[in-house]
Design a protein around this nucleic acid. Structure first.
Lengths: 212, 212, 212, 212
DNA sequence: TATGAATGAGATTTCATTCAT
DNA sequence: CATGAATGAAATCTCATTCAT
């Protein structure tokens, strides 16, 4: 049986997430994670090379989930605006319905050392690629502004989402983050300024706004 | 004489920033910071309660600098849009001209434990207050959208700036972050969507756009 | 069927020698030895009680080989001097033609813990017995000095051979150890001092020296 | 005060020797050595880089002692035979009067891993140099045989001494090793063979034998 | 104020060995 | 006989902090 396919692999990752979320990154000893997973400490090393590897695998697994959920949410949408709208909503939904995971990704894992951060940073490219694709389509179709570098648009989108989820976690989950999906989309799409009637972004009848 | 007034206080903070920037957060031992500051390790404890306190003090000091520079940049501007524009530009300028500080605030200090993060989070309220004030004025004057909660507008502004500086540091300072001030303002102000002629945000003659 | 008769028994010993020689004593894990032998780790414990037992068995097997080769080399020699000469030559030949084995016996196995060393020490008595027999015969026949305890003569002979092989291994096998057989015999037989003509040890026409 | 000059430096080395001799190499934990030395475990790392470094320093210190004692014993002797005789006697005396040290050098330290062994091997060159010098003088003066490579003479001398001390330690110190000095010298000097009257090596009236 | 030598708690990781299959 | 997944004990080393001077 494949090492990564074993149910202990998933059990250890789940345990790591639990422990990190509850006890904090720096208190997440291998021994606690192993105990939580119901295995011996040494067993962890049958599935992961070392502690950093375990953490990177955890992040990869969860990020892959996030990205796949977002891709699925985008589904067959054609309009880049609609794609953006769905991607934003799904990002907030994927983390907003998993407070424990959100705490891990937004707060705790950021305490990892530079080596792990570097690998996490590489993994983020998977999610960036999805955003970049939407931006490229949007600019190609003339729907998105070309006055600003695509990378900076990505910084706007990702930075806003990241900060939103972080604020939610640090607030103690005290507000309804799912309700922020649409306002956040509007902000990103149309900006902070007051929209005149007949203003920005109201495209054809298939426009995102029309769907709401 | 005030403890905080001694030049060793500042020397230790400067040393901490140097060491953290060069060696990374997890290699920034008190002994190295003390050596860099030209004092004995024990002396650090005459000026700071403990290591977390030192880090929080460092962050507070630098954030206060950032906020005061931003307030000064805003100066006597009246139009909330202009205030926003200047604030964005100054945030990027304050960090963009201090790569070492940017590395510390964007990358290294985020590895601090949850306790320190919590205190840093509180300190951030100083900078958030400036943003929130601009937003409040913007919304009150009808220039900024009221369809979106002010806090979410703050998340957009801060998240975008934060992500921009982080991307700049992680790129190895390979692009001109100061040149991103205006595009970033436009994105935040007008959004991602293509702006129609006569579109959003062209206010009076004192409008930001008119200044460009 | 005898456990020790199985070919896996020999295969595991061979594998142990390979692995110890290549990876060093402290990197010679049971799992690697098993893999090299083409069996599962657990299988090793069907043939050996534990790791120390495996090492002792390996040493015993190889020492038995050495001793039997030496005895065979001595063959039908009668003169104790000739016996000594042949024993010395064969010791150097047995190890000098098996560099891997020499590395294991001279360098790696010496890192074994005191418990194993004690058992190895006992096994050495087999080889010592051969030397001691030659010494006894030499002293009985009046050919070898009686001024020195037989045990110390043994220390001279064994110590010199042992150090010679060790030096050869540590040199990276860079000199011809077989060529040292005769000089080593001469040193041991006649000592370091310059030999006068008609000096020590020129026995009858069958003396070793006559053969050179 | 020099780090290596502090009395704790010597105290830790002494403690290491005690613990290794009593508990065996593999049971010589830093914590036990520190306790024996009357310091905290962490203090050991103020004086030594790591455990291997401690062991190498211990060996170096003791070997330097041995070599200096031997050099002093050789003193003003001129005849290479006398120098050899004194060197042999002092080697046996230096270790024979320090059973604990002998156990450490002959048995326990040989269990060190390859890294440490390599450094120990380099340190041995100091002692080898003394022997080699005597051999060179002996050969130059025509007193020592030139038929055998000097290095092999060194192997004879060192190998015999080493094996002698090892046998003494493994016997549980059950024989008088100091009494072996003269017989060992004779063996090395004159060889195993029966010495004719007026035999080998009777030099001038100042010859070593005349002194006995 | 200032020093810096000393402290000591605490976690990762390895690997010989077992045992259910 | 054979397997190999799982076990779990054990020790090095770091570094924030203290305190006698």
């Amino acid at each position: 049986m494949s090492v990564r396919g074993g149910d202990k692999y998933a059990a250890i990752l789940d345990a790591a997430q639990h422990v990190i979320a509850r006890q904090g990154y720096h208190n997440a000893q291998i021994s606690r994670i192993a105990a939580e997973a119901g295995v011996a400490a040494g067993t962890v090393y049958l599935y992961f090379q070392n502690k950093p590897d375990l953490l990177v695998c955890l992040f990869r697994e969860r990020l892959n989930l996030l990205v796949s959920e977002i891709k699925e949410a985008i589904g067959d949408a054609v309009d880049p605006r609609e794609k953006l709208r769905r991607a934003i909503a799904q990002h907030l939904r994927s983390l907003g319905t998993r407070p424990e995971l959100a705490a891990v990704t937004q707060i705790e894992m950021r305490q990892a050392d530079t080596q792990v951060q570097q690998q996490i940073s590489n993994l983020m490219k998977g999610w960036f690629a999805v955003i970049d694709q939407i931006i490229a389509e949007g600019q190609a179709s003339g729907l998105f502004t070309r006055e600003v570098p695509a990378k900076q648009i990505r910084n706007l989108i990702f930075g806003t989402l990241d900060q939103t989820v972080t604020a939610w976690v640090m607030s103690g989950y005290k507000f309804d983050i799912l309700a922020l999906a649409e306002p956040t989309y509007r902000l990103i799409a149309h900006g902070v300024m007051q929209h005149r009637e007949g203003g920005v972004g109201n495209g054809d009848s298939g426009s995102p706004e029309a769907d709401l």
